[in-house]
Design a binder for these strands. Structure first.
Lengths: 340, 340
DNA sequence: CTGAAAGCGCTTACAG
DNA sequence: CTGAAAGCGCTTACAG
């Protein structure tokens, strides 16, 4: 491009003012239909590129929404993001992604960048240890925030997530109904609301059934496929080994099943395994994985919707929107039974 | 924030000019050390937020690099992106992600957005059907492009990808060495360079071994775990069924293995299955998957490096940088054999 | 229905 | 070592 084409270039070529050109390109009815068409045609043929930085500097709207999660390669987040993306696309918002890998410094750098770029809003699954003040910093600088999957107390904003305590209790109830009494739980951490809530659901369900909680059957930590795989060895070495396992997530369960299979134990035959999230892979895994549908697409859609409402002027308020999870019974938990 | 703090606010407070403040905040030696410290301190306590839109409007540098791939939820791209992210992070570039899902319109919308935001550069794995002119449009508007994983002829820019033809021939050679003669290939499409090149490697390896290519043993299409799973039925119905399969990707292979196992066929025992890419999961899968390491992190790192060089002023040139793939032999391909 | 002018918040020569 | 002034490319009252 020899010479950059800008509004004023078009205005000069056509003998109009930049004001008219600006209005016409945004389809303002203030400009006569015929003038509008001439202007648009000229913009097209001259290869005009709208300069959003300039516009944004003037209007203080950027059309950018930031999205920050633990790791987009995790299908659980991926599925949420897909529905967020869908929703934002329809409102012509550009969507800027970031992984924080639970490093507060990464999350802060991203937040700072969004502030500097004048982002219109932020959707985040806060990193471990996020203080409420980080979220208020954004809000105080006109950057509305909506939380997903995890909660931060005192943030003053709306969070969307599944009802993890209830969901986990559904799984454990199911295993108990299948006749299991020795049920381990693998994965998750006390440091996130998700981890705490799912463990609570596990303990409550045991308690309701009159089964003692055994700390040695609670293996904390794993949150990925790989660490689930690694946990198999630890599980197999457990004293008085349980015959059923609930996992923090599907990813952990799928990794664990690989690990158990490698050790010669057949998931769904020798041992019951359940996951959490009902990611796409759960239904086709071998064996098909019993899990809890955690409403990823609903979380994404509602979170995006709530953020758009904030952009449209709705005030912030602290609230927790719980999506009701559903049990998906498949073969991995039905020893000797049938199922898909 | 009652009142937005800007450069001029700081300048007034301190009785300095905005020029001095601007220079000081960017650590210019033109400003006296002591003045610089006063300014930075004031910026800190007043909660100043640097306005990148304004700066970028002035300098026409935005600090943004766009990255556009088929689907970031695909671990193959995820692994590339992780290393791109690493590299860009070190140069304090903000990294804006986009999935095009092989829809040209989505890719174009993203390209347009990057142009409007004045992005400094673009890394992309071009959508099916991307014309060279789309890439030249970016280049002509001062938006340097580097391609990954796929190539576009006549683009005039550098591409980084694995040597797919050679890589696929390694797998097929290995199966032949294991004694297989009836080898199917599942997945991939003629519409991408990756699909074409991997199929070519398959056919060349067969030819070298004097084995006829059988079109009915070439199942095109699958490129995801789910479609790999679905392809199992088609494969099982094949006339004169092969006893070995090479897949377009690990994801396809992993899905296929789920499908075969569900049908009662044991991958790695009754049938040999190989993947491509060597994603993290391949090594822990059950059975562990024989595959080809495709150098994802090298692709990402070198592509990011090349783009940074372009940003630093290096001219564009059309070239193809092939990363040499390596065979990873695991249990899925060694019927009756041993391995990890 | 269209135009002249100010201003968004920075950076960059240029002057002193 | 610091300041005054112009300008990046838009949009928005305001006037006509």
């Amino acid at each position: 491009m020899a010479q950059k084409v800008k509004l004023s270039t078009i205005a000069e070529t056509l003998g109009l003012s930049t004001a008219t050109v600006s209005l016409a390109l945004r389809d303002s009815p203030l400009v006569a239909e015929i003038t509008r068409e001439r202007i648009k045609e000229e913009a097209r043929v001259s290869g005009y590129i709208y300069n959003r930085r300039a516009a944004s500097l003037r209007t203080s709207k950027s059309g950018i929404v930031g999205v920050c999660v633990h790791d987009i390669m995790n299908p659980f987040y991926g599925e949420i993001l897909k529905s967020v993306e869908n929703e934002l696309d329809r409102h012509r918002q550009t969507f800027v992604l970031c992984n924080h890998y639970d490093e507060l410094s990464k999350q802060r750098a991203f937040l700072e960048t969004m502030l500097q770029l004048g982002a219109d809003g932020l959707i985040m699954s806060p990193a471990i240890g996020t203080p409420a003040s980080d979220i208020r910093l954004a809000e105080d600088n006109d950057l509305p925030v909506t939380l997903i999957a995890r909660t931060v107390d005192g943030s003053g904003v709306t969070s969307f997530r599944g009802d993890d305590t209830y969901g986990m209790s559904l799984v454990v109830d199911h295993l108990i109904a299948e006749g299991h009494r020795k049920i381990a739980m693998i994965g998750g951490t006390d440091l996130t609301s998700t981890g705490r809530d799912r463990e609570l659901g596990y303990r409550q369900a045991l308690e309701r059934a009159g089964i003692d909680y055994r700390p040695d059957w609670r293996i904390q930590g794993p949150r990925s496929r790989h660490s689930g795989f690694d946990a198999a060895a630890e599980f197999l070495a457990l004293p008085d080994r349980p015959d059923a396992v609930v996992c923090f997530s599907d990813l952990v369960a799928l990794g664990l099943m690989y690990g158990l299979a490698r050790a010669g134990l057949r998931p769904g035959i020798d041992i019951a395994v359940c996951g959490y999230d009902d990611i796409d892979e759960a239904a086709i895994a071998m064996p098909p994985l019993t899990t809890v549908s955690n409403g990823q697409s609903e979380v994404g859609q509602r979170a995006a919707g709530a953020l758009l409402a904030r952009l449209a002027g709705e005030p912030a308020r602290e609230s927790l929107e719980l999506i009701t999870p559903h049990l998906r019974i498949r073969r991995s938990s039905r020893l000797g039974g049938t199922g898909d």
